[in-house]
């Protein structure tokens, strides 16, 4: 079973773990994800691979506690085993020398852009990174991303760090400055990805988004990850997670993501009680 080698609390609700999983690490490319089942009774949840080390045989996962299964995952400590990890999954980020690429990360999506930014830089791109969160405490991975980016811009909703505002404001400024942008990549909450796409669509700047749909098997079997792209149904687990943001039906995506909200709350309360009672 994959062992947790180290664990770090990045903010109140976000944790980072490094896991021993040599066969996953050896095959991983930027933009791919894994499915985690922390204990036998838990859900199968998709999480992006935030970093990987082929030599050490490790992968890094950064996750936010949003429900029962992430709460259980967060209750595991250094040295504990994770019941199951499956991966790498999904189609890797397409890498080539695009020119200037703006990579945008929001919330826990910030950590998810790290391997993409790194790989874009290695491929010879000029990478401008924009990261945004609600407040300073949630603005993670800033120093790591700064070393890999030609420029790093930060925004917070409350102005506690960087610009007070949204990542899309920074994106607009870069565009308005007359800088030629060849590609935009956005990873984060649905409303954020949608707004960024609204900014780039009129200018026809190719914008890729990485979708965090619900998943079960995540191997092309159950179909819950279906999403409408350009009027066609696509399966995010095997055809994604990256899609052309200008073609994605974000309204449908948001609705499908919330399909189980009440049940998820119930499960989370159940787990909270269990964890409290030890």
């Amino acid at each position: 079973m994959p062992k947790i080698l180290s664990k770090e609390k990045l903010s109140e609700n976000i944790s980072k773990i490094v896991v021993e999983a040599p066969h996953v690490a050896k095959a991983t490319k930027p933009g791919q994800f894994i499915v985690v089942v922390p204990t036998e009774n838990a859900e199968r949840i998709p999480l992006t691979i935030a970093d990987f080390d082929k030599k050490q045989g490790t992968i890094t996962i950064i996750f936010q506690i949003v429900g029962a299964t992430t709460r259980i995952l967060n209750s595991l400590k250094e040295g504990d085993n994770i019941a199951h990890i499956l991966g790498p999954l999904g189609v890797p980020s397409h890498m080539e020398k695009f020119g200037t690429v703006v990579v945008i990360g929001g919330g826990v999506g910030i950590a998810e852009i790290y391997p993409v930014v790194k790989s874009l830089k290695e491929t010879g791109n000029e990478v401008i990174t924009i990261i945004g969160a609600r407040c300073k405490e949630l603005l993670i991975y800033e120093s790591e991303l700064r070393t890999q980016s030609a420029e790093l811009k930060t925004t917070t909703d409350d102005g506690s760090s960087g610009r007070k505002g949204f990542v899309s404001d920074e994106l607009k400024d870069i565009i308005n400055s007359g800088k030629k942008i060849d590609r935009v990549i956005v990873v984060g909450p649905v409303p954020m990805m949608r707004v960024c796409c609204d900014v780039t669509k009129p200018l026809a700047i190719k914008t890729m988004v990485s979708l965090n749909t619900l998943m079960l098997d995540a191997t092309g079997m159950c179909g819950i990850c279906r999403v409408t792209v350009g009027g066609e149904t696509k399966f995010a687990c095997v055809e994604g997670p990256e899609f052309d943001g200008h073609q994605v039906d974000f309204g449908e995506l948001a609705s499908r993501l919330s399909a189980y909200k009440n049940k998820e709350k119930e499960a989370d309360n159940h787990v909270c009680r269990l964890l409290k009672n030890g």
């Binding site: 009774n41 029962a68 098997d217 159950c222 119930e266």
Partner: peptide, 20 residues
């Protein structure tokens, strides 16, 4: 999806099993 939730993930035993 429906059968996977019920049979594989044991959603019929929710919330003992956490898949809804």
């Amino acid at each position: 999806e429906y059968l996977f939730r019920v049979n594989m993930m044991k959603a019929w035993k929710f919330p003992e099993y956490l898949t809804p």
